[in-house]
Simulated assay, not measured.
Amino acid sequence: MSDKVTTVWKEKMIFESDNPSGYSFNLGVSEEDNDPYKSLRPKAAMLSALAACSGLDVVSVAEKMKTEFSDFKIEVVGELTDEHPKIYHTVIVDYHFYGSDLDEKKITKAVNLSVEKYCGVMEMFRQFSKVETKINFHNN
C-alpha cells in the first residue's frame, strides 16, 4: 500500500498539497498577517499529523471498550535542534480527556495502545526524536 500526494507552488512561500482522500490544504510560510492561503508550516503540520493519528486510534479503541468522554484534545510540543537541518529532537504529546465519571483505566489503555502499537506517525517520530506522553483527566 502506498500514498501519493502532489504539492504545487502557488506563489511566494506558499504550496498547495492534495491528499489521498481528495482534499487540499496549504503549506508554507506566510509573509502577511492577512494571508489568504491560511497555510500550515510544514513542521507544525507534522505535529498535527501525529496528534490526529494517535487521536484516531484512541477514539476507535475507546469506542470498542465502550468508554466515553465528553471532550478530548491533544496538545503536541516539538522542540527543534539549533543547527540545520532543524529537526524535532524532543516531542511531548499531552492528552486531555474531559467528562464526568471518566474511566481512567480504560482511557489509559486506549492511549497506551496507540502510543505503543497502532500509531504509525508516532513510530516515525521515534526514529528521529525522543517522544514523551502525558495523560490528563478533567472530571466535571
Rank of each mutant, 00 (worst) to 15 (best):
V121L: 01
D101Y: 15
E32I: 06
T108L: 14
K4H: 07
S17E: 06
S100M: 14
D57V: 00
P85N: 08
D3Y: 06
V115W: 01
G28N: 01
G78Y: 03
P36Q: 10
M124K: 02
F137Y: 11
P42V: 06
F25D: 01
F97H: 02
D101R: 15
A44D: 15
V115N: 00
A62Q: 01
V93G: 00
L47E: 01
F125R: 01
K109L: 15
Q127R: 12
H84C: 05
N136K: 15
R126N: 04
S21K: 13
T108M: 07
I135D: 00
V29G: 08
V61L: 10
S48W: 08
K10M: 10
M46R: 06
V29Y: 10
R41S: 07
F137L: 05
T6K: 08
T133M: 05
G55D: 03
E116Q: 13
G28L: 02
F137A: 06
V29I: 12
G78I: 04
Q127F: 03
W9L: 06
I87T: 10
I74D: 00
V93S: 00
Y98C: 08
L47W: 00
S30D: 07
G120P: 00
H89D: 14
S129E: 05
N26M: 06
E79R: 06
S70Y: 04
D94F: 02
N140M: 09
F128E: 05
Y88C: 00
S60K: 13
A49T: 05
V76M: 03
P20G: 12
N136R: 11
K130Q: 12
P36K: 05
S17N: 10
E16Q: 12
I14R: 04
V76T: 10
D57Y: 02
C53A: 12
E63N: 15
D57S: 03
L27H: 02
T108K: 15
K12Q: 14
P85T: 04
F128G: 13
E116Y: 12
H138S: 06
I135H: 03
K86S: 06
D101N: 15
E79L: 07
E31D: 09
K117Q: 11
V29L: 07
A45C: 13
L50N: 00
